[in-house]
Nucleic acid binder design. Sequence first.
DNA 1: GATTGTTTATACCGATTGATATAGACTATA
DNA 2: TATAGTCTATATCAATCGGTATAAACAATC
Lengths: 193, 193
Amino acid sequence: MPWEKSFDEEAALENAMKVFWEKGFEPASIADLIEGTGINRGSLYNAFGGKQALFVKSLLKYDRDTRQAKLAQLEAMDNPRLAITHFFDGIVAETVADSERKGCFLINTSLELSSHDSEVNEIVLKAMREIEAFFRRSLEVGQARSDIRKDIEPQAVAKTLLALLVAIRVLGRGVYSEAALQTIADQAKRLIQ
Amino acid sequence: MPWEKSFDEEAALENAMKVFWEKGFEPASIADLIEGTGINRGSLYNAFGGKQALFVKSLLKYDRDTRQAKLAQLEAMDNPRLAITHFFDGIVAETVADSERKGCFLINTSLELSSHDSEVNEIVLKAMREIEAFFRRSLEVGQARSDIRKDIEPQAVAKTLLALLVAIRVLGRGVYSEAALQTIADQAKRLIQ
DNA sequence: GATTGTTTATACCGATTGATATAGACTATA
DNA sequence: TATAGTCTATATCAATCGGTATAAACAATC
């Protein structure tokens, strides 16, 4: 064996993800990705395949590191009502903390690509389904523990919470200020009070 | 005078709008616009300027023909609660009726371009602001007529209604089925009951 | 029928796109 | 030190992008 890999493939993927997240699939050029990752053109193609493959890897990494990690953390709180509350407050805080207002990579992708690429579409759909499932599960457990009002339908309210989440992410990209986003988040919390 | 204009500029703009609506600004090529409008390359540049100018004209036309027309129609009902109810039911019906699931041109644009182009951004922002203002006005009038519960804050609920509208438009592009969208619409109606 | 302005049909421009190929620098093993 | 594998640097590819230019076809006025 001559030489083990030198550049950090995971770090490169992390940087590629940021480029795609910020610009989207089409507008992100190979030149952008080369500059963003810091690795060479040849290495990039060798390590990740092509632009499309790198995008899919980036999206999966985002889903893993951001969405799945967040849901696992909230689930571990073992306090459904508080978990949902934290979720929404966290989303607002996260949205306004990002000076670039990139929004959510998954939701951005759902509007840019989902209709064109079935593999990407599947990733986005799975993420949405699992967030909704998390809400529903939380509502049901919360109701069982008499911590969430029992006159709501978990199935319907879970969908509405996902809707409000999506809206905060979309409107947070430039339309609404922090106060306006927090207003929506507060209404979400009010739904399950 | 030699010859009056022959091709229908308004019809061409209508068709250009559909192309941009379906594909978005970047992915829509000049070739697509030529094919979509049916008019020639030279005529297109002569009549509309360039791609960017044609996009702005298309977006303004959509805003005029779709959003402004809809709000005016609902306002004319002079029944705030029913107007909001009709609005949401109509959006769901409209969303699922479109087999291409194009969503809302304005909202799609807000995610693709608003951060890059200030003129486009202004058009989108104005549209959002006016929809929210319509909701707020409707809620206030409805409360004054004791037709809408008075324990809600029009300002906050108007923002939430806009959020749910945005979400229906986004999730309607491929994530959610008609039933799921209707569930969200029903929750919106439930908010003001 | 000549003139005038609008349309269409192409050819073309420079720039950029994603992608491939090649050559050389580098480092760890043998 | 020779070899093998990985990296960088660069040249290049065909295709496509938005936009411009040119010339012919066309119809209404004079």
